[in-house]
C-alpha cells in the first residue's frame, strides 16, 4: 500500500454526455456535465462536494465509481489508475470504493430480503465461506448501523426511510471499503433522522478510518461532518478549502452566495444576503469566460472573456476567481 499518496486523486476529470438525435442517432450536442475537476481525498478524510442541482456533483461520484465511463482525465485510487481500467479488472477496485445513494426507497431492490441485499457484496467479493458465516457477517453489519439483527429476513418496504438509509450504509460497509461516496445520502431524510445518519457516518468514519466523498447541496449539513469542501458550479470546482476557512473566509462570490442562503435559526440575526438572480445556465452551452459571470454580483469585463483558473488564495485554499483578494463584504451593485 502506498502511504505517501492520497487515497483518491482526481485530475482534470471530464464527463460529457452526448445528446443524440436525428434518424441515425448522431450526436447533435454535448452536455458538459463535469468539465475538468481535480481534487484528492486523504485516508479517513471527508471531502464534501457542494453545489446547486445540475452542477455535475453526482456525475463526479458516478464517474469515480465507473458507473459512467469518463470522457477525459485521470482517477487514481491508492496510486492505481482506475479511470481507464477495463471493466473486467474493476472488481478489486469496487471492493474499496462503495456508494450510498440519495433515495432510500429506490436504492434497495424491493424484491430482495435485507439478508440478500447485504449478502450480495459479501458473496461477490468472496468474503463469506458458507451460509452461517454469511448470516453472522450480515448480523454484524446490522449491529454497525444500529439496526436489530432479527430484521435481516424482512423486505425493504417494511422499514422507514431512515432505517433503509442505514441498510444502504451497511451495504456500502459490507466489502470493507476505504472510500464511501455518499451521493446526497441524507438529503431525502427529515431533519431528526438526517442528524442520526450524519452522526452514524461520523462514528463509522472514526471507527473504521473511512474516507468519505460527501456530495450534497446543503452547506448546513456539510458543516457538521466535513474536513474540506469543494464548491462546484456548472461542471467545475470554483473553490476548495477546509471547512473553517470556507465558512469564515470564503473567497469565491458563488461560495458567498451559497453561504448566505444557509438558513439561520435566529430571525433577528443581522444578515447580509447575496441573492442570486436567474437560473444556472445550461451545461449544454456554458457561458464564455467565467461560468459564473452571468449571475455574479461582482462581474467585470475580464470575467466575460477569460476563464479564471484555480489558484491559491491561502494555505490549502484555492479559488477560481479573477478578483485578486477577497473583498471584505459583498455589496449588491
Amino acid at each position: 500500500m502506498n502511504t505517501t499518496r492520497p487515497l483518491l486523486e482526481v485530475k482534470g476529470l471530464k464527463k460529457y454526455f452526448p445528446i443524440t438525435g436525428g434518424l441515425f442517432g448522431q450526436t447533435t450536442a454535448k452536455v458538459y456535465a463535469v468539465d475538468g475537476v481535480s481534487f484528492d481525498i486523504q485516508r479517513g478524510e471527508t471531502l464534501s462536494l457542494v453545489g446547486e442541482s445540475g452542477c455535475g456533483k453526482s456525475t463526479v461520484g458516478k464517474s469515480l465509481l465507473r458507473l459512467y465511463d469518463v470522457t477525459d482525465g485521470e482517477v487514481y485510487l491508492d496510486g492505481q489508475r482506475i479511470d481507464n481500467m477495463p471493466a473486467s479488472k474493476l472488481r478489486p477496485i469496487r471492493q474499496r470504493m462503495q456508494v450510498v445513494f440519495q433515495d432510500p426507497f429506490s436504492s434497495l431492490n424491493p424484491r430482495m430480503k435485507i439478508r440478500d441485499i447485504l449478502g450480495e457484496p459479501l458473496t461477490n467479493f468472496g468474503l463469506v465461506k458458507n451460509n452461517a458465516d454469511l448470516r453472522e457477517k450480515v448480523s454484524l453489519l446490522m449491529d454497525k448501523v444500529q439496526l436489530p439483527r432479527d430484521a435481516i429476513d424482512r423486505f425493504p418496504h417494511e422499514f422507514s426511510g431512515g432505517q433503509r438509509q442505514r441498510i444502504g450504509i451497511a451495504r456500502a460497509l459490507a466489502p470493507g471499503a476505504d472510500l464511501i461516496i455518499c451521493d446526497e445520502a441524507v438529503s431525502a431524510l427529515d431533519v431528526s433522522v438526517k442528524a442520526q445518519i450524519i452522526n452514524l457516518l461520523v462514528d463509522l468514519q472514526d471507527e473504521l478510518g473511512l474516507a468519505l466523498l460527501f456530495i450534497s447541496h446543503d452547506l448546513a449539513t456539510v458543516e457538521h461532518l466535513t474536513h474540506r469542501v469543494a464548491v462546484m458550479y456548472l461542471g467545475k470546482i470554483v473553490e476548495l478549502t477546509d471547512r473553517r476557512t470556507l465558512f469564515s473566509k470564503p473567497h469565491h462570490p458563488y461560495t458567498k452566495a451559497l453561504l448566505s442562503a444557509v438558513p439561520v435559526p435566529d430571525p433577528t440575526a443581522p444578515r447580509n444576503r447575496v441573492i442570486l438572480t436567474g437560473d444556472v445556465p445550461s451545461p449544454i452551452n456554458p457561458p464564455s469566460g467565467c461560468r459564473f459571470h452571468t449571475r455574479c454580483p461582482l462581474v467585470h469585463d475580464r470575467c466575460r472573456t477569460e476563464e479564471p483558473q484555480l489558484r491559491t488564495v491561502g494555505e490549502g485554499h484555492t479559488s477560481a476567481c479573477h478578483l485578486t483578494h477577497a473583498p471584505g463584504e459583498l455589496v449588491m451593485g
Partner: peptide, 26 residues
C-alpha cells in the same frame, strides 16, 4: 437506471447476475 442496480454494479455484481437477480424479478 435504478439506484439499486447501480449499487449492485458498484458492489461488483456481474451483468448476468444483475439481470437474473435485480432486473428479471422486477
Amino acid at each position: 437506471e435504478q439506484p439499486y442496480v447501480e449499487a449492485a454494479i458498484a458492489s461488483g455484481t456481474k451483468v448476468p447476475v444483475i439481470i437474473w437477480k435485480h432486473i428479471l424479478p422486477n
